[in-house]
Design a protein around this nucleic acid. Structure first.
Lengths: 220, 220, 220, 220
DNA sequence: CATGAATGAGCCTTCATTCAT
DNA sequence: CATGAATGAAGGCTCATTCAT
């Protein structure tokens, strides 16, 4: 949500010339708000018309603000990402051991990627086209990931040859499988869930993604 | 009201299951062949009509043989899977060290999953449906995977807590990312490619998936 | 940043419910007009596409205005029903004897039901659905029928135990047979036509439906 | 059923040259039998393929025996009509008063017309095209109707101006409405059911179809 | 004769996007 | 700027009927 404080400065600008902009602004906000709801409830695969209709605007208005579906998703996702950013700060502020912090972050990241049904797809596309409206958000998120990965690597608890991009993609991949297998298979869940694997004895043993990047989990 | 005596007078009926008619066979084969080509060249997202047309048959014929798109894909994939099976035999016959064999198998598996653009999706769905026309093939492939995983585990070179299903899903996930990122050629490819990560020094060091299941790859 | 006060500054927004756009109106009218023509000439069993094409609009436009075939028919019929309503007023205004009025009304009703080839079918379905787009029209028509039946009953010239619904269904049924037998021109037509049966001698003798509801038609 | 006696002459002709015919015969019988079942269970609106398949024959065989859907229906109906014929004999044999007999016959007739969902339609068509495969059956049935109507007319309990054709069509029409309204409206049921109408006082009072043809039901 | 494969026109419907109002 | 109507290309699927085998 951008700039909530600005909402109340209106009384001064009561005149006509401002009105148009305010309208546009309200429309835009409404669209994003409704789209977020719809995406969350029904997944990303929704006709644009439906979004426009349910937001109470014309299709033209929707397209004016968001020329492509990606643009809209980009905006919705950017907002959703504030939650992730907050979570990032939380983990950072918790003064955890780097390995533990990374682990928690990866959990949060996977969850974020499954915010909307069908999100991994666009995310994957955004990764390769830096001109995608989703790209800034993705980069931001990758950056945050780096902020957890590198300390862990410096602390020797994460494999050195893994970089943030790779890790991001791995999480994305796991989010993709998990979003369909959830409940059906538990193995995949285990892969992404970062829970200690059954049969693991040592504290350092980790299954799934963390194992991918974390050192020292070998068995004997 | 019927004539029961006449029922058994059919000594002429040699073959109960009349051989499939030659033209039907030809059409079916043609469809599968063309579909394989199209899938390979343009991905799975092709109108059924287009497949029929390019196979030189009517839409009805296509639907007669393959009532759903999945059925067609199932057949095409089953055919494509013979290559994978052959590869399986090859690796088995090569008298390799179990870890090495597993590694090669995972390579082959990942490649198979990327046979057609968009294949990971249906594969993911097939994993949970069991009634999917793709399911038999998937199970077969998982079984082969088990055949490589378990020896590796017994030899102590693969993590014990990973099972074949999980591993299959992990490869699938990686195939999914990789199929989009491929061109961009970077870490994600490395994740699925099982190539030694850059910067890896030790012989036992492995990046990506193999690292996920293989023991003893820790750095120092 | 938004301007809540601006909300009410819309003295320019005269009409809250913006009048229907002229072109939309034109298209809609055109569709209904053409559909009426086609229905009249070729019956109700016409591809929706054909209607759209001949109305000079895209299929989408047709579906926008009339999501289902029933919706379209409902509109066409509603229009056609104004004729029937007019006829209703006429009969009412003619200061006829109740029995005579009822008779004329039943004639008009039967004719209306045969406006389009295949109309009795949808009418029959609409009778039981109530959510059908045709239902309002049907109810209206039944109501009009009641308006003629009850006076006739009070006047003792119509059987007391027949109600408007039953009568409506009987006329519908007769319209259904008649619409196929018409050409063959024989008794069935007579059944619905309410003409005096051949061989009838007495003034009170009536054949067909009127006989069903009218008292006093016994022979001698 | 054509030529049931010929059925048992098979044992003598055990040789090949008869075998073919026996086959054909069995197929034909099987088709009719299965079609009757399907029609009864799912109505007349069933793909021809489905009938062939469920009868265990090829589509070609079906078409050989019954070039059109009407031909098949004609055969099925002819068989079903034996029940009706039996009922006819029963009523005739019951030594009833002519009016009572007519009434019972009309009940049986209406029931027969609703043997299969969607039957009234073809029946209506058959009425006008004497070349229809259904025509013989229809004529037969009309003839039977005449056999009840005329005595009733002679006995003065049925209106003289109604003829068998008209009556048949009226029953057909009522069967058509009733088959959809059944349960929903009771009025229509009443029309076809021939039950004494509520509020009727005299013994001779009859509602519905019988009222259409029966004399003496006038109120006062 | 039986088979059942092939045909292919036809139908319905959805939606991203443009553009007149 | 907003509106929402119009477009029209797709795509999926069915089935009566013919005909090669």
């Amino acid at each position: 949500m951008s700039d909530p404080a600005a909402r109340d400065d209106a009384p001064r600008t009561r005149n006509r010339h401002r009105a148009v902009r305010a309208d546009a602004r309200r429309n835009r906000d409404k669209i994003v708000e409704i789209a977020a709801q719809i995406f969350a409830r029904e997944g990303l695969d929704v006709p644009m018309d439906a979004i426009a209709r349910r937001a109470g605007v014309g299709a033209g208005t929707l397209y004016r603000h968001f020329p492509t579906r990606q643009d809209l998703l980009g905006q919705v996702l950017a907002q959703r990402t504030t939650d992730l950013t907050r979570r990032c700060r939380e983990i950072e502020g918790a003064a955890l051991e780097p390995g533990e912090a990374l682990e928690r972050w990866l959990d949060a990241l996977g969850e974020w990627m499954r915010s909307y049904d069908g999100l991994p797809g666009p995310l994957r596309e955004a990764y390769t086209s830096s001109s995608s409206p989703l790209a800034p958000t993705c980069e931001e998120v990758i950056e945050m990931t780096r902020g957890f990965l590198e300390p862990a690597q410096r602390a020797g608890v994460a494999r050195a040859e893994v970089d943030a991009d790779t890790l991001y993609q791995a999480v994305l991949a796991m989010a993709w499988v998990a979003s369909a297998v959830e409940g059906a298979g538990d193995g995949a869940d285990d892969v992404v869930a970062n829970r200690p694997a059954e049969g693991d004895s040592g504290e350092e043993s980790r299954s799934g993604l963390v194992a991918l990047v974390r050192r020292g989990w070998r068995r004997s």
